[in-house]
Design a protein around this nucleic acid. Structure first.
Lengths: 261, 261
DNA sequence: CGGCAAGTTGAGCCAGGTCAACTCCGGTGG
DNA sequence: CCACCGGAGTTGACCTGGCTCAACTTGCCG
């Protein structure tokens, strides 16, 4: 991610006390938020003043697993940043089938201004999700003057578009095993660093994984087993797998068929 | 699309001659380009000076059907705007299968900076495509100072992300007929206005339509026939259909099954 | 008018969906 | 602490939508 350079991290400024009058103190709530504490995220690009202003006009909220962000909320708060957890964009078809079109994680900024004229779909939490509802006015003002912040926002949006495109590829021509392999890599890429090497955390349930990959939960289950039987992964528990043959998994994710047998 | 207001269209400024020294003349090539002539597109937001500057540092190119935009080009020109035609993002799987993950049309701005670390895929023209390779430097500068231009670019990128998401829904849980119905509406939404009512131009071939929808061209063919047999559309020729029962088609596109029979 | 690519139609087959039974696991209350 | 419960996951048997392959037709361009 190409974000200009971040000269001095805001937290350092705070520590030096240079700008620390009351109004400029870093809000407590921001200090423990990944949007601020991870240097590649949006809030980390802000000056103390900007951060305070944004914080004053914004609201955090905790969405529990299974709950969705109401339409009223989206109307009033069309810009939402994710601090932690997994948020999905879920679409309900007419006969009970449902599809998860995209998943969002910490650092992502959702901009739903003029989402209204789009076809319906809801944002459903797949785990406990901490969000920050950003004030559109302040957001817009910041993006106007703060180049680093603008670049991060732009970059994140492009990232979302790329991910959606990659996902479309998985859905278009890959078969079940390949989709799953591809998903495991997606998890690996997006998960927090610092976990055990080759161990991947699967942040969502089988059912939702199916809805995301266009498969039935039974099929997902069978595929996990098949990958395990082929010695490519080891399923440690429902939400953790270990890649035991990365090359094979990678090849499979790309649609290679030597390993399909 | 929420683009601020466009006060006075640049072309009017030119006509009044107010700013018409040599350097500020609207480039001839821009006058016939949809990016400039359609008021909701990027170049229409620019001042004469900006347009000239951008034009001087950019290059137009015509890509013929089937050809793709080379990697070298993308490296040097990571930002490409589409004047006309249909451009696809195509991914080749290992055994000859190929998938079209997204399609782009006039007005779309592709920003491939840092595409390099993404998995491979090519931009292939599905019809004759006129593109304008924008200078990243000038583009960046314009986006910095021109709010309307920035909003258009941002809005377009969001649009791309939304479309990709909608497409993912089509691919995830819909069956062949539903996918095709959905695609017909997508064409309708995106096509130039002013064509005959309920007549939709299908801008791509059966084969590519299949690659886009995750179907075989044979299946696409069968689905067209089936829709026609059910009296929902009339296939006028390979690239034109007429919607004879819009409600049914719409319902089907949403995944409703009354009409599947 | 001939040639070739694109599209269509048909027959058979298989990956993955469907349905139903079963297991596993975490939480709860006696 | 254990018995119970309910939801999530797994496994098996069967079925079907769409893929495959092959033959045929249509449409386009020189």
């Amino acid at each position: 991610m190409q974000v200009g350079q971040y000269t001095v991290s805001p937290i350092l400024l705070a520590d030096t006390g240079k700008f620390s009058n009351m109004a400029q103190q870093i809000p407590e709530i921001c200090q423990i938020c990944s949007l601020f504490s991870e240097p590649e995220n949006f809030c980390a690009q802000l000056s103390n003043g900007e951060l305070c202003k944004l914080n004053r006009k914004s609201q955090t909220e905790s969405v529990k697993r299974g709950a969705s962000i109401g339409n009223g909320v989206l109307q009033q708060w069309p810009i939402i940043a994710i601090n932690s957890g997994v948020l999905s964009f879920k679409h309900q078809l007419e006969n009970g089938r449902s599809a998860i079109a995209a998943i969002f994680m910490r650092g992502d900024i959702l901009d739903m201004r003029d989402l209204s004229n789009r076809n319906q779909g809801r944002f459903v939490a797949l785990s406990k999700v901490e969000i920050c509802k950003l004030s559109p006015t302040v957001f817009e003002r910041i993006v106007k003057v703060n180049e680093d912040a603008r670049n991060v926002a732009w970059s994140n949006l492009r990232e979302q578009a790329f991910r959606a495109t990659d996902h479309a590829i998985d859905l278009t021509k890959k078969q079940a095993l390949e989709k799953l392999a591809s998903f495991i890599f997606e998890c690996d890429r997006r998960q927090e660093t610092g976990v055990v090497k080759n161990t991947v955390h699967i942040p969502i349930r089988r059912r939702e994984l199916g809805e995301y990959l266009g498969l039935q939960s039974e099929t997902v289950s069978r595929c996990f087993r098949q990958l395990e039987d082929q010695g490519i992964i080891k399923v440690l528990n429902l939400s953790t797998v270990m890649m035991t043959n990365v090359a094979a998994l990678e090849h499979m994710a790309r649609g290679g068929q030597e390993y399909l047998k």
